[in-house]
């Protein structure tokens, strides 16, 4: 059976003046897949993610996200995806419940359904006792988990996670990845970036970007074999280091 593609990218080019941030990227991402998007700082990951999220338009090439053309109807994409970054996630001076309500409202959920789903979610996360706590006074690990749960609260087709576990303790980091697995098993596609190379091993497939291009794309085990490395970390260094300029 042909797997369903939720992201289709063909020859994506994005230029800023004379600078080519994305240089003919082509890849597909399938429904329910955990797709790791790796690369050195400045390799062009953020630019590509912004296009996939409908925040920026490609210079040329074809980008389809959840069946929508990113060049033509980027606004439509935003409704069908979730997004979480390490920097901004939740409003610190709103409570847990208020934050979820705000996000649900933004995505146009009806109040009755929203409250019902919110309480179910708090229960599932064992968060009920924190429901009326301000985000500001929530431990960091819990914030990250909540902000992930909020990013998928409106049942998006794809969730984009930009360094979701940066600086998080090892226990929470693992709990966080279990949430990712659960989400993917429900058919939500997870598109994730990370600097923790062990986390790259948890992805179904990974792509490594370097200087605007995709230089590797496959399952972690196939890539490790192909390049003869024991870990993704070694693989990453092997692929990106020799081609790197001295800055």
């Amino acid at each position: 059976m042909e797997r369903e593609k939720v992201i289709e990218v063909r020859d994506l080019v994005k230029k800023f003046g004379a600078f080519t941030a994305n240089d003919h990227l082509s890849f597909d991402v399938y429904r329910g897949e955990i797709f790791g998007f790796l690369g050195a700082n400045g390799a062009g990951k953020t630019t590509a993610i912004r296009i996939l999220c409908g925040l920026s338009r490609p210079t040329s090439g074809r980008v389809m996200v959840a069946g929508i053309d990113a060049s033509r109807r980027p606004e439509e994409i935003k409704k069908r995806i979730g997004y979480m970054s390490q920097r901004f996630s939740l409003y610190e001076d709103l409570t847990v419940r208020e934050n979820i309500e705000l996000y649900g409202g933004i995505y146009g959920m009806r109040m009755k359904e929203l409250i019902h789903r919110r309480e179910a979610m708090l229960q599932r996360l064992s968060f009920t006792s924190y429901g009326d706590t301000l985000i500001r006074s929530l431990p960091l690990g819990l914030r990250q988990k909540l902000s992930f749960a909020t990013a998928v609260f409106h049942d998006p087709e794809i969730v984009f996670l930009d360094e979701p576990t940066s600086g998080v303790d090892p226990v929470t980091r693992r709990q966080f990845w279990e949430m990712i697995y659960e989400t993917a098993s429900q058919g939500i596609t997870v598109f994730v970036t990370t600097h923790y190379m062990d986390e790259a091993e948890y992805c179904d497939r990974i792509t490594i970007m370097n200087e605007g291009k995709i230089v590797a794309l496959d399952t972690p085990s196939v890539l490790r074999q192909q390049y003869g490395t024991a870990t993704v970390e070694e693989l990453f260094v092997k692929i990106t280091r020799p081609q790197r300029t001295m800055v």
Binding site: A40, N41, A43, E163, H195, E233, F236, T240, R241
Partner: peptide, 13 residues
């Protein structure tokens, strides 16, 4: 203080 946080694996090395 955390000079390598958010920095890619090669730059960290």
């Amino acid at each position: 203080d955390e000079p390598t946080t958010g920095v890619d694996a090669v730059s960290r090395t």
